[in-house]
């Protein structure tokens, strides 16, 4: 630190540096221009288009879609599937992070890779796996037939597909937070006579709450928007096993552009809320964003 502050005035005194600056500025704006153009073509124009197309038909057309039975059922199913998936993945994510954090054991990094595995597997392949397990010709097919429980082409299948693709989100956010927190506070609480449960609620949870929230937001966004895995297991029966993303695809195929974009608008708003919350958490709670 002291070294660099000593160096700085000398470097600034060198005549070459100011001379190089004007040319560098030119390069700067060229590069900034390129980045804006690239992002406009790939991200910004497509995002704005969702709003433009949805609002183009006017309010009555949107109300039409919002009040259609298949749309309402698709929203309901998406919300239900997410409401089951996210809490389950939260319990898993917290348990996995607590089990791994601040501990050394052989195979630790392997276990972390295993938890991250669903991000590397194509959602369609994940759906295929569930069909091979629970489909009528799958492992548990005969058993399910006998008991009359439907998994594939029904809510359980949709939930399991969603669980599969969103499994790593919470664990991978909470784990680094726990590592950073260390074990001292928890140990102190234990010495003072707190039960593990009390320690978790009063000591552990408050210090990881922002990371947990961050993971929850990402998990929720992905759960609501999952397409590939759900497409394989749901059967896409309109009004019954059709989630919102499947509704969009179906409406698009039927050339019902207005309905497709109205539903897309709803999910795009979810994406905007997700991004805003994510940004706020990154700024205020100092959470670093990782991939996915």
């Amino acid at each position: 630190m002291a070294n660099s502050s000593l160096n700085r005035p000398i470097a600034a005194a060198q005549p070459t540096k100011p001379a190089a600056t004007p040319g560098f500025q030119w390069g700067k704006w060229l590069l900034v221009g390129f980045v804006f153009a690239y992002l406009a073509l790939i991200l910004l124009v497509p995002a704005l288009n969702v709003f433009a197309q949805a609002l183009k038909g006017g309010l009555p057309a949107m109300v039409d879609t919002f009040s259609s039975r298949t749309f309402i059922n698709a929203v309901k199913l998406t919300v239900i599937a997410t409401a089951i998936t996210v809490p389950l993945n939260t319990v898993f994510g917290l348990c996995a992070a607590i089990a791994i954090a601040n501990k050394t054991f052989p195979g630790r990094s392997l276990l972390i890779s295993i938890i991250d595995l669903p991000f590397s597997i194509s959602p369609v392949v994940a759906g295929l796996m569930l069909v091979l397990l629970f489909g009528s010709r799958g492992w548990f097919g005969p058993l399910l037939d006998e008991t009359g429980i439907k998994v594939i082409f029904a809510l359980p299948g949709i939930v399991m597909a969603t669980i599969f693709v969103t499994m790593p989100f919470i664990a991978r956010e909470v784990l680094p937070a726990l590592e950073e927190m260390g074990t001292e506070q928890e140990e102190a609480a234990a010495t003072l006579g707190a039960t593990p449960w009390q320690t978790f609620w009063r000591v552990t949870l408050p210090s990881i709450r922002w990371s947990l929230l961050y993971g929850l937001i990402l998990c929720n966004a992905r759960a609501m928007g999952e397409f590939g895995a759900v497409a394989v297991v749901s059967g896409n029966i309109a009004g019954k096993t059709q989630t919102l993303p499947l509704f969009i695809e179906e409406a698009h195929i039927q050339y019902d552009t207005q309905s497709a974009y109205t539903a897309a608008l709803l999910l795009a708003c979810l994406a905007v809320v997700t991004l805003v919350l994510k940004y706020v958490l990154e700024r205020s709670a100092g959470i670093q964003h990782r991939g996915h």
Binding site: V35, F36, L39, L43, L44, V45, P46, A47, N49, V50, Q53, L218, A221, R222, M224, G225, E226, F227, G228, L244, P245, L246, I248, E249, H252, T257, A260, Y261, A264, L267, A268, L270, A271, V272, T274, L275, V276, K278, Y279, H289, H292
Partner: peptide, 23 residues
């Protein structure tokens, strides 16, 4: 711009496909 980079993580892929195919 920095916040918008994460849009592909947040925007459901069905929406992305729909709007890209229109544009």
């Amino acid at each position: 711009l920095d916040a918008a980079i994460d849009l592909p993580f947040a925007l459901p892929t069905a929406v992305a496909g729909l709007t890209l195919s229109t544009i």
